[in-house]
Computed example of a mutant assay.
Amino acid sequence: MTELAAAFPVDAAELDRLRARLAGAAAGAGVLDVAYRTVDSPVGELLVAATERGLVRVAFAGEGWDAVLQALAARISPRVLEAPARLDGVARELAEYFEGRRHGFDVALDWQLSAGFRRTVLAHLATDVGYGSTASYAALAAAAGNPRAVRAVGTACATNPIPIVVPCHRIVRSDGGIGNYLGGPAAKATLLALERGQA
């Protein structure tokens, strides 16, 4: 493979053009079910993925992107392709958020990776806990209609497929402790500090 690569070198720009052509052809033929790209952020590089319905996944590097892409292929469709153009709006809104210029997201969301009570919790999270504020797991359980389901709320936050955009980082322990986070405690602290204007 190394000899072949040396015999037919392709620069990064050409590879990007080829990828864009492939993504365009796949979209035109209606065979691009899940598009993905990566974006830089203060909490590390993020993988973002979308279906035609909207943003379906935001993943931290620590989650293992190969595993994330395999899960998307298994749960949604095997037709997964790196197609950055479909996610330009998401990338722009995330950049604005990380620059402190955006306090909420307007991108369409595809909720198919969440169901039942978890989906209810995430819906409340997306609408009830505003930028720069926090709520406890217990408060979110009450808002979701089941005050005793604190542990289930923790599970919903831990399995949130669209972190940052659906802000599970705003949920903290009742004693004020930061609690767990899929992206790690340092990422959670960074996001909370950013929203408080301390980043």
Rank of each mutant, 00 (worst) to 15 (best):
E45H: 00
L55N: 09
L47K: 01
T159Y: 00
G130L: 13
G24S: 09
A12R: 08
A25E: 13
E99D: 15
E3Q: 09
V150F: 09
L109W: 04
A35P: 07
E3H: 07
A123T: 14
A142E: 15
E63P: 02
I162D: 12
V80Q: 09
A12T: 03
T2Y: 02
I171W: 03
P167T: 00
L87H: 11
E99F: 03
Y97W: 10
F8L: 14
H169P: 09
D33F: 01
M1I: 06
L140W: 02
E96R: 14
L125I: 07
T127E: 14
E96I: 08
Y97I: 08
A85Q: 12
I164F: 01
A5V: 02
R118E: 15
V166R: 08
A135N: 03
A12C: 00
A83M: 03
Y97P: 07
L4W: 07
R151A: 14
H124W: 06
C168Q: 10
D66N: 08
G132S: 01
L32K: 12
A27N: 03
A108H: 10
R102T: 06
H103E: 14
A73K: 11
G54N: 11
D11W: 04
A27W: 05
Y181S: 12
A5S: 08
P167I: 01
I162K: 11
A59M: 02
L32F: 12
S133I: 00
V31F: 12
I162H: 11
R119L: 15
Q112A: 11
L125Y: 06
G177D: 12
V34W: 09
A20W: 01
L72G: 08
A83E: 03
V172I: 15
L94D: 00
F117C: 08
D106K: 11
S114G: 12
I76S: 04
R19K: 12
G184Y: 02
A152C: 08
A108Q: 12
E14D: 10
A199Q: 04
L94E: 00
G145H: 04
A186Q: 13
P84V: 07
L69K: 13
A144K: 04
A193C: 03
G130H: 13
G54M: 10
A152R: 14
I171R: 08
V90Q: 05
V90C: 05
A193I: 03
C157D: 10
V172C: 10
P161E: 13
G104L: 05
A193L: 09
M1W: 11
L140T: 06
T2F: 02
